[in-house]
Measured scan of single mutants.
Amino acid sequence: MDVFMKGLSKAKEGVVAAAEKTKQGVAEAAGKTKEGVLYVGSKTKEGVVHGVATVAEKTKEQVTNVGGAVVTGVTAVAQKTVEGAGSIAAATGFVKKDQLGKNEEGAPQEGILEDMPVDPDNEAYEMPSEEGYQDYEPEA
Results as ranks from 00 to 15, higher is better:
V118L: 05
K43C: 09
T92F: 14
K60V: 15
E104I: 09
D2P: 01
G84W: 09
G132Y: 11
A90V: 14
L38M: 07
G132N: 11
E110W: 02
G25V: 10
E35H: 05
V26T: 02
M127Q: 11
E61H: 10
E35A: 11
A78W: 15
Y39W: 10
E126V: 07
Y133Q: 09
K32Y: 15
K45T: 02
V16I: 05
A19C: 01
D2F: 07
D98L: 12
G67S: 13
S87E: 12
I112N: 07
E83G: 05
V40H: 05
D115R: 11
V15K: 00
V37M: 08
A17K: 11
I112W: 13
V74F: 03
V74Q: 01
K58F: 09
K23C: 08
K12D: 00
D121Y: 11
Q62D: 01
A29I: 15
Q109F: 11
G25L: 13
V74A: 06
A85Q: 05
G47K: 14
A78G: 05
E123A: 07
E123H: 05
T72Q: 14
A11F: 03
L8H: 00
A124F: 05
V3E: 12
A91W: 14
A76Q: 05
A90M: 14
G67R: 05
Q62G: 10
T44R: 01
Y39E: 02
N65W: 14
K43L: 10
V16A: 11
E105F: 06
G93H: 06
A53G: 09
T59M: 15
K12A: 14
K23V: 12
A29N: 01
E57A: 08
G132D: 10
A11Y: 10
A76L: 15
L113K: 05
G86P: 03
A17P: 00
K21M: 14
N65Y: 09
M116V: 00
A107Y: 09
G7T: 15
K102P: 06
E13I: 01
G73N: 05
G84D: 05
G51I: 15
S42L: 04
S129M: 06
P120T: 06
E126Y: 05
G31F: 12
A56H: 02
L113Y: 15
A107P: 12
E28G: 02
T44Y: 10
A30I: 08
N122F: 14
S129R: 06
A53N: 02
V77L: 11
A78C: 13
D119S: 01
A90Q: 14
P128Y: 04
A56E: 01
A27I: 13
P108M: 10
A124C: 06
P117K: 11
S87R: 05
E114H: 14
K96I: 11
L100K: 09
I112Y: 13
T64S: 10
S87I: 13
L8E: 00
T75D: 04
G68N: 01
K60D: 01
T81S: 08
A69K: 04
M5N: 01
Y133P: 06
V70S: 03
Q109G: 02
T22A: 11
A30D: 00
Q62Y: 12
G14C: 11
T59K: 01
D135M: 05
K34G: 02
E131L: 10
D2M: 09
G111Q: 13
L100F: 08
A11N: 00
A76F: 10
K45R: 11
E137A: 13
V37C: 09
A11K: 00
V82I: 07
A69N: 04
Q134D: 07
E13K: 02
K21H: 00
G7K: 13
T81N: 02
Q109C: 04
K6E: 15
D115V: 05
K23S: 02
A91I: 14
G86W: 14
E139L: 02
A30F: 08
G68A: 14
P138R: 02
Q62T: 10
V82H: 05
F94H: 03
K10D: 02
V71C: 03
S42T: 08
E20S: 09
Q134H: 11
E110M: 03
Y39T: 04
H50N: 13
S129I: 09
G73I: 12
K34C: 10
E131R: 12
D98E: 07
A11M: 03
T81P: 01
V55A: 08
A85N: 06
I88T: 02
P108H: 14
T54G: 03
S129V: 05
V15D: 00
D119A: 15
E83R: 13
K102V: 15
G7H: 15
T64H: 10
A78L: 11
E35M: 06
Y125P: 12
V55S: 01
Q99H: 13
G41Q: 11
Y125S: 01
H50K: 08
K96V: 13
V49P: 02
K23N: 00
G106V: 07
E13G: 05
K10F: 14
M5G: 01
K32C: 02
V82T: 02
V70A: 05
P128I: 07
G36Q: 13
E104F: 14
G67T: 12
D2K: 07
E35R: 09
A78P: 01
D2Y: 07
D121A: 09
Q99A: 11
T81I: 15
A78S: 03
T81W: 15
F4Y: 12
G25M: 14
Q109L: 12
A91R: 13
P128K: 11
D121V: 01
A19P: 00
T72A: 05
G68Y: 10
E137S: 07
L38S: 02
T33R: 11
K10E: 02
D115K: 05
K45G: 10
T81G: 03
S9W: 11
N122A: 01
Y136E: 15
L38Q: 05
P138E: 03
Q62C: 15
D135I: 06
A124G: 14
T72K: 15
K6L: 07
S9M: 08
T44A: 07
G36N: 08
V118A: 09
V26H: 00
E130A: 12
M127C: 10
L8M: 03
N103E: 10
G106L: 12
A76T: 08
N103M: 05
K34E: 00
V48E: 00
G41V: 14
T92V: 09
K34S: 08
A11L: 10
V82C: 06
D121P: 08
K6D: 09
K80E: 04
K97I: 04
V66C: 08
T22E: 00
G47T: 10
S129A: 02
E137K: 11
Y136M: 09
D135N: 07
M5W: 14
T59E: 00
Y39V: 01
K21G: 15
A53D: 02
V26I: 11
E46G: 01
V15A: 05
T22G: 05
A140M: 01
V71T: 04
G73A: 15
K102A: 10
V15P: 00
G14D: 01
T54P: 00
G132I: 08
D115Y: 12
V37H: 00
F94M: 14
A17L: 14
Y133N: 11
K97V: 05
V118N: 14
E104Y: 15
Y136R: 02
I88N: 02
V66G: 01
A76M: 15
V63S: 02
A29E: 00
L100R: 07
E13T: 02
L100M: 15
Q99D: 07
G41K: 02
E35N: 02
V3A: 15
V63L: 11
I112L: 03
Q79F: 14
T59V: 14
Q62R: 12
V63F: 05
Q109S: 10
G84E: 08
A89T: 06
V49I: 11
K58I: 13
T44E: 00
G132H: 03
V77P: 02
Q99M: 12
G93S: 03
Y125F: 12
V66R: 03
V82N: 02
P120L: 03
E20W: 04
F94V: 06
K32A: 12
D98Q: 01
Q24I: 03
F4K: 00
G14P: 00
K12W: 15
Y133E: 08
E131Q: 08
K34T: 13
P117D: 05
E28S: 09
P138Y: 08
N65H: 14
E123L: 05
A107L: 11
L100P: 13
P120E: 06
G31A: 11
T75C: 09
E137F: 10
K21F: 08
T92N: 05
M1Y: 15
D115Q: 07
A89Q: 04
